[in-house]
Nucleic acid binder design. Structure first.
Lengths: 197, 197
DNA sequence: CGAAAGATGACACCTGACGTCATGTTTTTC
DNA sequence: GAAAAACATGACGTCAGGTGTCATCTTTCG
């Protein structure tokens, strides 16, 4: 899904400061052209992302970003809070767009707002099995989430990252293998190199 | 978008107890076939929706639903809360899927969880202009939101519904009119009859 | 100057989403 | 019991969005 990948792109840019388009293409498992298209879409949507050309160019998120843009009132946030304590289970299992997007945001939360929600996000990250007990059709999204979680883990608890890996790999590949001729990295199972610096 | 409509379908079913497929088709401005497909998708996603055949059949949401399914822990909800107070502005303007979906949920919130968030949702519903001051590309989504809001208003504050209607109508119709041959109700401006009983 | 990387346009392919048509099946109503 | 209304399902065609690939061009750094 495109919206899904846009979110991942944004989170990747928030985590690392600057990434080259080929690098992003590898991480997101799409072509460089698609990465540039996505960057254009992000920029058109108001995300302060800009690019730098030349030898060591790359995609850069505006440094001042990631902190309080505060587009939402406390009231609105509270409304969401109330909503999410109740109905959300259905709405999460309902559509991959909202569901997986929120989960990805949640997974990447500590990087953005580490101050108040780190413990919460830690629980979610450490125990991804819980997601598997969700709605029945969680195969693909659980896999994607596991991959994403693993990446995040590499950043936070580098020691405890191994051994908790899902048995099936093939990130972003559908079980039917229909999408395999597209991506060039369908065989990879371990998380990609991570610029741990 | 399909995910968007699935959410609307769920909310419609939550508001009214039971609706026939042709009725839903009219409200959602799609064909009956699509409504049935959507119901199937909802059901496959774990939403307890069932159908009743025969003369006065219809689509019914399980009565026990809408209250605490509690698929999300308070921790997770708090994580979302923290998230939505911060980064959300970008993520809202970013992708219509998450953004408009959340707004629709928020708009329909009082029907579901009237107890704790009515005042919040009321503020949101009464002052939709605020959404217009968001990211620049909010044309279509703002229109859709306005239409949706108007419908909700008819239910809650029947007296104050008029006069605050957006100048452009054509709900769910793209400005280019590309989608017009599909939907059968592209010309309508006023909200549809609402079963106000 | 050459290599690496972003920028852009064009073209083809594929898939998901819809509408339409056709045909059953079930339930209510007359 | 027949007709009507409504759900159920399969098939087929259309259409637009998303992607990959190819081809150039421009910019920056070594």
């Amino acid at each position: 899904m495109r919206a899904d990948r846009l979110l991942s792109l944004l989170l990747l840019l928030q985590t690392h400061g600057r990434l080259s388009a080929p690098d992003l293409a590898g991480r997101l498992e799409v072509s460089v052209r698609t990465v540039l298209r996505d960057v254009e879409a992000l920029s058109a949507s108001g995300v302060p992302v800009y690019t730098e050309r030349g030898r060591h160019g790359g995609i850069v998120l505006m440094p001042g970003f990631r902190t309080d843009v505060t587009g939402m009132t406390a009231d609105e946030a509270r409304a969401l809070f109330v909503l999410l304590t109740g109905t959300t289970h259905a709405s999460l299992g309902l559509e991959a767009a909202v569901g997986s997007a929120l989960r990805k945001i949640m997974a990447a939360l500590p990087a953005a707002h580490r101050d108040a929600a780190d413990l919460v996000a830690r629980r979610i990250i450490i125990d991804p099995v819980r997601w598997r007990s969700g709605p029945a059709s969680a195969d693909l999204s659980t896999l994607q989430e596991a991959v994403f979680t693993d990446r995040r883990l590499r950043l936070r608890y580098r020691a405890a990252s191994s051994g908790r890996r899902p048995e099936r790999c093939s990130p972003r590949g559908r079980p039917s293998g229909r999408r395999s001729p597209r991506g060039r990295h369908s065989e990879r199972c371990a998380p990609r190199g991570q610029h741990t610096g």
